[in-house]
Design a protein around this nucleic acid. Sequence first.
RNA 1: GCGCCCGUAGCUCAGUGGAUUAGAGCAUCUGUCUUCGGAACAGAGGGUCGGCGGUUCGAAUCCGUCCGGGCGUACCA
Length: 564
Amino acid sequence: MKDVLEQKIAQVCNELFGVEVGIELTRPEEQFGDFATNVALQLSKQVGKNPREIGEALAVKLRETLTQEVSDVSVAGPGFINLRLTDMALVTGLKAQPAKGLDGQNVVAEYSDPNPFKALHAGHLYTSVVGDSIANLMEQAGATVHRVNFGGDVGLHVGKTMWAIIQELGSEDIEALLTVDLDSPEERAAWLSQRYVEGNNAYENDEGSKVEIVEYNKRVYQLHTEDDHDAPFAQIYWTCRQWSYDYFQYFYETINIKPFEKYYPESSTSGIGIAKATELIDKGILQDSDGAVVFKGEDYGLHTRVFLTSEGLPTYETKDLGLIIAKYEDFKFDKSVIITGNDIIEYMKVVLKVVEQFAPELSAATKHLTHGLVKLEGGEKMSSRKGNTLGALEIIDSAAKAAKEINNDDQAKQEDITLGAVKYAFLKQRMGGDIIYDPKESVSLEGNSGPYLQYAHARARSILRKGNNVNVVAEDALLEEGERSLVRKIGEYTEVIDKAVNDLMPHHVCTYLYELAQTFNRFYEHNRVIDDPRQTLRLGLVQSYADTLKSGLSLLGIAAPEQM
RNA sequence: GCGCCCGUAGCUCAGUGGAUUAGAGCAUCUGUCUUCGGAACAGAGGGUCGGCGGUUCGAAUCCGUCCGGGCGUACCA
């Protein structure tokens, strides 16, 4: 509808003033109309008339031209043209579908990226939820999306944890590890995370331990190159890595996001990265510097960064270089989206600049989307030393407690509500800045919250269950005011989704769905549906509304229960 | 120092390809109420859109500058 109107208005401008303009219709406040354009103000200079005059002339012509779609054209303020749609045009809009802007595209979406041997914290929850939704949006727009995950199963943090594990066990004793009393994935993960904290402390505070940890780090790389599964050290490593993976799996199932198609451990990409880095040294793209291999980012306005350390070990940059190559070999993607925290923006620029040197089309197809940190109220940063960190599952647990106070009879529904609250709380904010997470208030059950939307959906379904007939709004329906507002709002859905896909920003969907639910609740409060002379029409509206709300929530990864 | 990001109501945030009176939620106060499910609806108070300057008929939105905060700035990720 919007596109059609934009084209027709552009044509009218051309006929009237002989100029080519692109029309961008906006959604004004409802009192002004359904669509608005400021084209008269834009044309003013070109045409040499005052905008009000141009607006009036356009309005006259538009009234003649758009009789099917538009019932009223008015000129307001300095020259805005406000269009009011006909009821027929509005009702037609109920059937519109979002554009397939990514039709046929092969896309890789990388997000979540947890490291084995460490804990999952609030940030992992956030990035997983937002990544899942962005992948949903692209899928909805017609893309084939491959969800992948990347994590550091090698690197200094693993050295730290391995060191502490062996300290705890007393020696490199795999039997001792297996007799530690740990049953659930959560318990094992917690045990590992405790070891990491110990290893980290030792690394920072004790020179002797630090030397050992560096050595353990090298041994971990070595066991990968030798594909060692037999030595006790190796067995401890593989066992604990699996514990972490089991825990990740458990976590993703708990938060109910779509499964990952492939998990790339760093150990699998570092070899590819090293091979490429070595090749790039020969080409002069990477170079020696103080015993390390670096990329001279300064030449491109970026930082100089190390790719291979003087120990000969690959850094994050090289592993990521390997990852980009591996992803392309695996999926031959048209587009690759990487979702991470914004603290690695500069790193990624350097990595992509290096990729550009040997495969410009690859770096051009890669988009790095970033989000901020999850912080506590007052903007306080979480830190393990202050003891104010939030575990990923702790957030879910505390939200579950809040949900329980309201509804404690059905386990499955309660989970839907809990996850709805948490996911929505994260998703409703524009991606990029830091998120303030208040354990008490942030995961709310009322107001602009997930449960509000879920409840608004359940209410509508309840009405529909009582109505039980085929609920379609007749094309020639004449709408009353409250009905009209609802139809108008539902009609915005496709525009909003298109925008969210274009920007890859799920919060647009949240903002819209909340407005939609508010519009519905207003309608519902003031208009009878069942046992009203307009029952058939209104049931059609309720149906259309409930379906729209449900579709939108599913893009956010939020369930829309039929009853609550 | 340099680079990037951020600063909108008491708190948490929308709005930033300029445009009709800057919007929500929470909190505070007041109404609706024997509900087609009140996790609701109606309303009130609360804002120099960090400051100053510029571009424009028009700036929260664009440009400059200053203040405040965050992140990055070679062998962590």
